[in-house]
Design a protein around this nucleic acid. Structure first.
Lengths: 457, 457
DNA sequence: ATATATAGGTCAAAGGTCTT
DNA sequence: CAAGACCTTTGACCTATATA
């Protein structure tokens, strides 16, 4: 391996500074075992580099010239030998930095931990080492799909949603905002739920799903999306939740139940998000991960959904790998988010029961998990109950005919997706599109009720 | 990348290398390239010596015994190391005399300028020196404080818990197991909860927390630990949940509510865990992540808990980083786990209300979130309700005096932690230890009720 | 049978370690 | 910090074997 001397000098300066003989206390890798947990039946971890290489046969680990496929990945002899030695001797490596070392032809020997990890990620299988010669993988790689996500798609969908929202940092005095009444809160929720539908429609993979699945996905985690949205919107402020319609919720509000939920949102979500200083990409990925829930009741194409969540999850890992532990911290926001969302939904149930809230049919359907007035707010024995606000029985679309949701769920025309930089449709345009589509008969299910124009935004 | 530089070595000797008034390393190179040397100081003592030496065994710089060819010249380890260090650190030497110093085995260290110049003259190439590599030895860093987690601690605690459990793969016929009655299920839960307490006591960082925090942590996610435990225990089987006391729950059980929860456990947890083929390390980390919940209501040292969860989370990342996406998939099991656990807790509430289950006081306290009979099972407005089975108000230890939990929560003696390979204490030993500790007055809170011996295991 | 792909092995010459 | 005796790792090149 030949190294150019000119690069060396610069690298040396960096290294001599950053080298530290003391290890972080978080490095406990001496106990990490390589020999366990190998073959998994998961969706193929997107063999990105090896496949997309222009047949130039580049090593998918270090981009040196590859000598063929070795242990499952196109690789050079160096990476091949390195992987074999590592697996054979059950080596345990330690990254002295933050596990983000660049692994290329010049620097591949600088961090064995990151090199080995990249070997695994490039698709090398440790079972291919030392075991009896396995058959050459006769799997066909041609499983490319339009069922895929990308960061740009997600950011685009996100940008669309923000177009409709109040600007995040208007400079306007936050204290001038009005305190939200219960009606204001419900109105905001409704707006945000419609935005969620629009957001989803901008994800092509979502639009390819069957209608029943689309409905089920939209319903399953609506509450979490509302909470996540308000938490993100409230990031710049202290002790204040900013609703989508520019109202605010204070900690010291009149309703102790509302304050309790609000406090949890601030403590368990806003503060961690602020400390992490979440980026737009990370937010978009997180939202998508929540959205594509393979365990969502009633979803038929759950393997596709699982694959989509997997992609989103890996996108998040990539986006958040700048700091060690960041990815995990982001994912660990999901359980409290789920918990808070359920608490909010239950309060909405109660408020509706005592007549304090006028629950719109869309709210009813997406948050309270049932048709209008068809379900009690208090859990009954015949229903899974509040820990699972949505019924676990398959949701048939025909059961939901008298619903607003199906009327707003149709995909956006592909032209709207294909022109990312063009102005996004306004609320009325969306309405008109849907309306036209429905009238043209492209909808399989006739909506009984159309949401009035002014409510769509 | 093959180096074919060995042939060039002799050519290098042909260059008449001259020295410039400036003494930088670069001078050696540039002069060699330009080959415009003006003042040739002295004929090389033996330009062909390296080649004509018997067996080529002499260092062409200092005539010491050569250990092979290094950087293009037969050389000893001393000159090899000297050359590498000089190039790596870009050292600039100065000759204090007239750049005519003799460089041999005895005097090679007397003038580094002349030694390095002779290295170049002997044919050593700067480009052959590579970038600094990764360290070879993984020596122990300092073991740091006790407020930290390590994989070995977690695996040890886990091993302890398994010691008390039925073997995972007994080879016994699974069909011979008895179907669990409601009483059996409650009994198993109770055993597992006691094991959870013992598990926690084997984590030093947990033992250092205040008593109130320990109680709160144990209560907060007890249901999830039960579900996680039964899911792991059931990994080898199909459509069967294996309880800790060797009873089984079938999908086709009599109680449709039980079957519903069981089905969710199998679909949303057992199957993904099986597909992932979760390792012991990963399981231990996941359990710890669930356990150390910084949002846990009533926890005072939440920053410490947050730090502990962070460590566990990073440990999991390390343990699962060999496959892309694996870490995320493991963490994404937590929301469904939380959901299923709450569904189970609610069923337990209902079963207790209708008198179908005899709920032990420990179950009551750890799962149902209240003192014995002090709380209703159906959510009331005064309580946050089922989405949060535990009250969010701080749990004061003195409110829990008439409790079994505080009596079993005291840390294990450190000796038990320090001897990982020694036989673990039996149930009665645990009981005796606690009993002795309590009687000795080390407990700050006097337990009112002690759990009978036979119930501790 | 021959060509190809990918497994395994070898060892010079890189690397790092660690006492002096 | 530098030196150098001593040990480990790398990877270019080679052979072996299964599949087409």
């Amino acid at each position: 391996m030949k190294l150019s001397g000119t690069v060396l000098d610069l690298d040396m300066a960096d290294y001599s500074v950053s080298l530290d003989p003391s290890y972080s206390m978080l490095e406990f890798d001496s106990l990490r075992v390589l020999s366990v947990g190998s073959d998994v039946l998961m969706p193929d971890p997107a063999p990105q580099a090896a496949v997309t290489n222009e047949m130039g046969a580049l090593c998918s680990i270090c981009e040196d010239r590859a000598t063929g496929k070795h242990y499952g990945a196109a690789s050079c002899d160096g990476c091949k030998g390195f992987f074999r030695r590592s697996v054979r001797k059950n080596h345990v490596y330690t990254c002295r930095f933050s596990r983000q070392c660049v692994v290329d032809k010049d620097k591949r020997n600088q961090c064995r931990y990151c090199r080995l990890r990249k070997c695994f990620r490039a698709g090398m299988k440790k079972d291919a080492v030392q075991n009896e010669r396995d058959r050459i993988s006769n799997r066909r790689p041609g499983w490319e799909e339009a069922h895929s996500l990308s960061l740009s798609i997600l950011l685009q969908a996100e940008a669309m949603a923000h177009q409709f929202s109040a600007p995040l940092l208007p400079g306007a005095d936050i204290t001038s905002k009005k305190f939200a009444s219960v009606t204001d809160v419900c109105e905001s929720m409704k707006q945000q739920l419609l935005l969620l539908v629009e957001w989803a429609k901008h994800i092509p993979a979502f639009c390819k799903l069957p209608l029943d699945d689309r409905v089920a996905l939209l319903r399953a985690h609506a509450g979490e999306h509302l909470i996540l949205g308000v938490a993100r919107r409230s990031l710049p402020y202290d002790d204040i939740l900013l609703l989508g319609n520019d109202f605010v919720i204070l900690m010291s509000g009149p309703d102790p139940e509302v304050s309790r939920v609000a406090t949890r949102i601030l403590d368990e979500l806003v503060r961690p998000l602020r400390e992490l200083d979440i980026t737009d990409s990370e937010f978009a990925c997180l939202k998508t991960i929540i959205f594509f829930d393979p365990d969502c009741p009633g979803v038929e194409q759950c393997l596709v959904v699982k694959q989509l969540r997997f992609q989103a999850q890996v996108l998040l890992e990539d986006s958040s790998s700048e700091r060690r532990g960041r990815f995990g911290e982001l994912l660990l926001l999901l359980p409290p988010l789920q918990s808070v969302a359920w608490q909010m939904v239950e309060q909405l149930q109660l408020a509706r029961m005592v007549g304090a809230a006028q629950v719109d049919s869309l709210l009813q359907e997406m948050l309270l998990g049932g048709g209008i007035g068809s379900r009690g707010a208090i859990p009954e024995y015949s229903q899974p109950g509040p820990p699972r606000p949505l019924p676990r029985e398959p949701v048939r679309a025909n059961m939901m005919l008298p619903s607003n949701l199906t009327s707003v769920i149709h995909p956006v025309p592909s032209s709207s997706v294909d022109r990312p930089l063009s102005p996004l449709p306004t609320g009325s345009e969306i309405y008109e599109q849907d309306h036209a589509r429905i009238l043209a008969g492209s909808a399989q299910i006739l909506p009984v009720t159309l949401i009035p124009k002014q409510e769509i935004l």
